[in-house]
């Protein structure tokens, strides 16, 4: 049997994505983003995102099919993000996927967005060795997972107890007068700065915190510390060294993320670390993970930045994995679940 041709639909936040894969090969990755419409609100506005998904889904689908040179009749299965994410936004993608699936008479898979962030790496680096540790960091999630069997379920090891890592980037960017979303401008500004010039706190790394929160994250204290530092400067009438603040903030985030991820790998005796989510596009995180993992003989797998942020290809990649593993498809009444647990890979 030839490898399955799978289409993936993603609408959990502000990106409308449609991807097409055959096995582990990426054929198309069409994306429409409403990010500019949210900028003046300083964060994603759910209703604005939902409206944009409805407008974008048909043209984005057409682009994906054209890019891949296939029709819906050629597709073996349709996968769609069923959760977690923004309820109204998810619903547009799920309803669209059902329409495509029923009209084309194809099976549908409602899948977990976070598991898809792990699966997308197979498009870049081939089959994922299991077990693996996954570090997923974005504006909406910050999690450490043990991936034993990506088709069956993943084990959450830890997560943020307050802000997501990407959220901290957005808030600090705003503080520094940089645009939304904050990840890329902070990464750029930080290149001109010294990450060790200001020592910002590393959340949940003190021995007393590690006892209970060994694999959890906290970025709220860090964000407040940066705000205090910047305000103190402003009040003293001194200029704010944006590059140094950006670099030092970024260093604090990346330091914690990489240390905890490596700790998880070592505690579980795992030799593969996959990093995904929008923050995985951060150049310092990628470099620091490479450098530190090398010391412990851990292989780091980070897909290229475009595959780290939300997209349809990641959903297609997970769908393809599920089809190949012989997992039964979802039913046509599958719900969108904004709080879908990590232990559920497909519904």
């Amino acid at each position: 049997m030839t490898e399955p041709l799978v289409l993936g639909i993603e609408t959990s936040c502000d990106e409308t994505g449609v991807g097409v894969v055959r096995g582990h090969t990426l054929l198309a990755d069409a994306l429409a983003s409403s990010v500019d419409e949210h900028a003046r609100f300083g964060g994603v506005v759910p209703e604005v995102a939902s409206r944009a998904h409805l407008e974008a889904i048909v043209p984005t689908m057409q682009r994906a099919l054209d890019d891949a040179g296939v029709t819906l009749a050629d597709i073996d299965a349709i996968a769609v993000t069923a959760g977690p994410g923004l309820a109204g936004a998810l619903l547009v993608g799920v309803a669209a996927a059902k329409g495509y699936a029923l009209a084309a008479e194809k099976p549908i898979y409602g899948v977990n967005h976070l598991a898809a962030h792990v699966a997308v790496d197979t498009l870049e680096h081939g089959p994922l060795p299991e077990p693996a540790i996954a570090l997923l960091v974005s504006g909406g999630h910050s999690s450490l997972l043990l991936v034993d069997d990506l088709a069956a379920g993943v084990t959450p090891l830890g997560a943020t107890i307050d802000d997501a890592a990407g959220e901290a980037f957005d808030k600090v960017a705003r503080l520094l007068g940089l645009p939304f979303p904050g990840g890329p401008p902070i990464d750029r500004a930080a290149r001109e700065g010294d990450g060790e010039s200001i020592v910002f706190p590393r959340g949940l790394t003190a021995p007393k915190d590690l006892a209970r929160h060994r694999f959890d994250f906290s970025f709220s204290g860090l964000k407040t510390a940066v705000a205090r530092w910047v305000e103190a400067r402003e009040r003293a009438g001194e200029p704010v060294p944006v590059a140094h603040v950006a670099a030092s903030f970024q260093e604090a985030v990346c330091d914690v993320l990489t240390n905890k991820a490596i700790d998880a790998c070592r505690e579980r005796g795992v030799e593969t670390l996959v990093i995904g989510g929008g923050v995985a596009a951060n150049s310092r995180l990628r470099a620091l993970a490479e450098e530190r993992c090398a010391k412990y003989g851990i292989t780091v797998r980070v897909p290229r930045p475009k595959l780290c942020t939300d997209n349809g290809a990641m959903v297609a990649a997970l769908g393809s994995h599920l089809v190949a593993a012989g997992v039964a498809p979802s039913r046509l009444n599958l719900p969108a679940d904004s709080a879908m647990p990590l232990t559920v890979v497909s519904v």
């Binding site: 048909v58 547009v92 309803a95």
Partner: peptide, 17 residues
């Protein structure tokens, strides 16, 4: 809004297919 979009996206995706 949320319910309304379900009908429209369903119709649009079936029509496109």
């Amino acid at each position: 809004f949320t319910g309304l979009r379900v009908g429209l996206v369903t119709a649009a995706s079936i029509g496109q297919t």
